[in-house]
């Protein structure tokens, strides 16, 4: 029984790792696209040029924070 449990544990942890890597990329990508997209839209609307960059930085920061919340915190 304990053999099965430790096998289960091992499988869970390596599966979590695979899952985590794919979702990290997904979070970063959507953070950049969503907030960068909002910045881009504001740029088009207000006629400025720097809001894309501001939005992308904000999105990257927010998604790294999200990654830390999901996977880095114990």
């Amino acid at each position: 029984m304990s053999q099965k449990n430790s096998d289960d544990e091992k499988r869970k942890s390596s599966q979590n790792e695979e899952n985590a890597l794919w979702s990290i990329v997904g979070y970063l990508l959507s953070g950049l696209i969503i907030w960068g997209g909002i910045g881009w839209g504001l740029d088009r609307w207000l006629g400025t040029t720097y809001l894309v960059l501001a939005g992308m930085l904000l999105g990257a920061g927010a998604s790294i924070y999200l990654v830390w919340l999901r996977f880095g915190r114990d």
Binding site: G26, Y27, L29, I33, W35, L58, Y65, L66, L69
Partner: peptide
């Protein structure tokens, strides 16, 4: 809604989560 986050931060995080689950996952 991620647990354990101060309320104003949800403005920043919720769009990212929704986009991840409903757009980025099938698209990627």
């Amino acid at each position: 809604f991620m647990p354990g986050v101060p309320k104003p931060v949800y403005v920043l995080l919720t769009p990212i989560e929704v986009a991840t689950y409903f757009i980025v996952r099938p698209l990627t």
